[in-house]
Design a protein around this nucleic acid. Sequence first.
DNA 1: CTAGAATGGATAGCAGCACTTTCTACTATC
DNA 2: GATAGTAGAAAGTGCTGCTATCCATTCTAG
Lengths: 210, 210
Amino acid sequence: MRIAELSRRSGVPVPTIKYYLREGLLPAGELTSPNQARYSEDHLHRLRLVRAMVELGGLSIAAVREVLGALDDPEKSLHKAMGTISAAVASPDLGSDDEVAHEQVKAFLERQGWGCRPTSYAYKALVGVLATAREVGHERFAEMLDGFADAARPLAEADLAYVLAGGSKDEALEGVVVGTVLGDAAMAAVRALARRELSGTLQPDAPPPP
Amino acid sequence: MRIAELSRRSGVPVPTIKYYLREGLLPAGELTSPNQARYSEDHLHRLRLVRAMVELGGLSIAAVREVLGALDDPEKSLHKAMGTISAAVASPDLGSDDEVAHEQVKAFLERQGWGCRPTSYAYKALVGVLATAREVGHERFAEMLDGFADAARPLAEADLAYVLAGGSKDEALEGVVVGTVLGDAAMAAVRALARRELSGTLQPDAPPPP
DNA sequence: CTAGAATGGATAGCAGCACTTTCTACTATC
DNA sequence: GATAGTAGAAAGTGCTGCTATCCATTCTAG
């Protein structure tokens, strides 16, 4: 298909597709002549994946490029790709030097029996959250971590099962992307629904605004 | 204290504080003369809260203003404030007309025994996620929702307990903000840690990049 | 008491980002 | 052979979250 059809079927404007091509988010089409190229179903698929990451995941163009790089690297193990993808989804580094927050995270990991180097981005992200919590006077917030961990454990198993259910390695890697990006968005929505439901039963008056 | 001290103690540059004052994220200081104002500990607290929402939560200035509006409204019930806050945290509306996604969400809510109008933002957010999942060829993604719900239920209880533990209504409302904004960030980090751990045990080779 | 720094308030400017527009030189199609 | 579509490059746009500059006034150190 040509770029106009790619645009029509994806709902993405032609100039935006050209922009993505320039930025390396989409591989170039197959040139049939100096100014004519053909695009495949793969392009359409990839384009939709890019839009999902940008719109739903709120990823920057640079982050999307990084994720796609991990996705296309034939050397990369599933385990490593997961790390790259989660790192890209997380908010950009805000390294904290809060000693107490560090200790809280270390103690938490110990309690959970999770081994994780302090250099890992997820470790840093958690320290950043706890440091911020302390700054706004919510030291108690750290007490909620174990609850999060209990919730996260079965989710991680479901994530992995979902990923491994995809046959090929490519499908599995894409499952990681979808599971992470859509998973985070879905979890936020479901969490809001659950809170809404619970707080509604305790205080059954008018519902929150649409 | 004066603006310089507010800046020093919060780590936020003076021009940025002035910007927040202009944008209505911070109440004006108490004017002691036409060009002198005094700021209180409350200002410092509020400023830190704003930074937490902007930096960790990734909220826009407009969204922060909306959240603070809900927080300052003495009429607003806790239940309603929760709705406003969750809506502000969520990614901006991307209303979908995907019928199948709609049905999937309805069926999900029925299974969970959750009553929720289709006009609610959380409902819409979930429809948007499922519609996107289907677009990228992951119809199976909807099967993960019940797992999310099982995880979200105890989290919602913990959230509410955390919120109600704060004595005054002001404290409770701030607990909602912290629980939502920091809670989402913490959950994402913990989820990544859990995935990392699980995938590491299944495939014990080099860890993901720092 | 005075020089210099700080303040409130206002306006203007800036950098980054995610596109969009415009252009040229072609090519496919009716 | 007129019309529409295309690749590719470059410049432009609109928005957001700050920064910088300015001024008249006021605090403050010596």
